[in-house]
């Protein structure tokens, strides 16, 4: 039932058509000597949601920021649709764990900010922003400021901002980690629903096994620091009929358990 794939790509030429992002031999040593990642090689299939799952401090954020082009790797390279990239680009949009909303700007301006930075005219970018504000369920809050919103609503703004720039790849760093449990479940469901409309490749970082199994097409288990790929698992849940039911699915429970058995060995 669980489809476990070996992590090593067997010498395939890079440029596998369905991989939106390819991580090739990435290593990262921070100035000061911390080795966060070691020889990570991974494909992120286009149109799928892949989670990076691993214990705290194993280098998930580091890997995501390298993919985003916010950090330079010490070794290896990142390819986006076959082309090597060196910095941030319009093909990737980031959703931050702490939301990273500008407190001095309204929801509307925050959502439109990526377009503002690209020089899109005000009327046009605000029209686009309004569309995505509606899509994430925040209609009526266009003129609110971030401090007037709850954590869950703030992250909806973060998601809308990332969608508004129309990047094919969404990079989400523990987007729901600082949000209370009930709201988090709702956000997970809404994210899945949203992804059925917006065809995106999502790279999703989490340290929650349940969250990973619930939202993912593919789960990459990372080992303790220095992070390496330990296993890749495909939960194969069926979300198309009933978003709620998936959480009671036997496949869901089995997958959670299997990942727990693997991750347990990394805990001291």
């Amino acid at each position: 039932m669980l489809n476990t794939v070996l992590s090593a790509r067997n010498g395939q030429a890079s440029g596998t058509p369905e991989a939106a992002v390819q991580v090739e031999g990435i290593g990262k040593r921070y100035p000061g000597g911390v080795e966060a990642l070691k020889d990570v090689t991974l494909d992120f299939p286009a149109g799928e949601l892949t989670t990076l799952l691993g214990p705290s401090g194993c280098g998930k954020t580091t890997l995501l920021k390298i993919i985003a082009g916010l950090l330079d790797p010490s070794k290896g390279q990142i390819r986006v649709k076959g082309k090597q990239v060196h910095g941030p680009g319009p093909d990737r949009a980031f959703v931050f764990q702490d939301f990273a909303l500008m407190p001095w700007a309204t929801v509307l301006r925050n959502v439109a900010f990526g377009l503002e930075l690209r020089g899109v005219a005000k009327a046009e970018r605000e029209a686009t922003a309004r569309k995505y504000i509606t899509e994430v369920g925040l209609t009526g809050f266009e003129q609110s400021y971030p401090h007037e919103l709850s954590g869950g609503m703030r992250q909806r703004v973060g998601v809308a901002r990332a969608l508004a720039v129309d990047a094919d790849i969404l990079l989400m760093d523990e987007p729901f980690a600082s949000i209370d449990e009930q709201t988090r479940r709702k956000l997970q469901e809404d994210l899945l629903q949203l992804l059925q409309i917006e065809k995106k490749t999502v790279i999703f970082v989490t340290h929650s096994i349940e969250e990973a199994v619930y939202v993912s097409d593919q789960i990459v288990l990372l080992s303790r620091r220095p992070g390496t790929v330990s296993r890749i698992i495909r939960p194969n849940l069926d979300h198309s009929t009933d978003l709620e039911a998936a959480r009671r699915d036997k496949a869901y429970l089995d997958c959670v358990d299997e990942i727990w058995q693997t991750l347990k060995q990394y805990l001291v």
Partner: peptide
């Protein structure tokens, strides 16, 4: 806030935009 600056960079802000639109505020 470091992550606001990262946000700016990830959405392609120029250095000037980073300073005037984010850092100043």
């Amino acid at each position: 806030n470091a992550s606001l600056l990262e946000m700016g960079r990830s959405f392609g802000a120029s250095r000037f935009a980073l300073y005037t639109k984010i850092l100043f505020f």
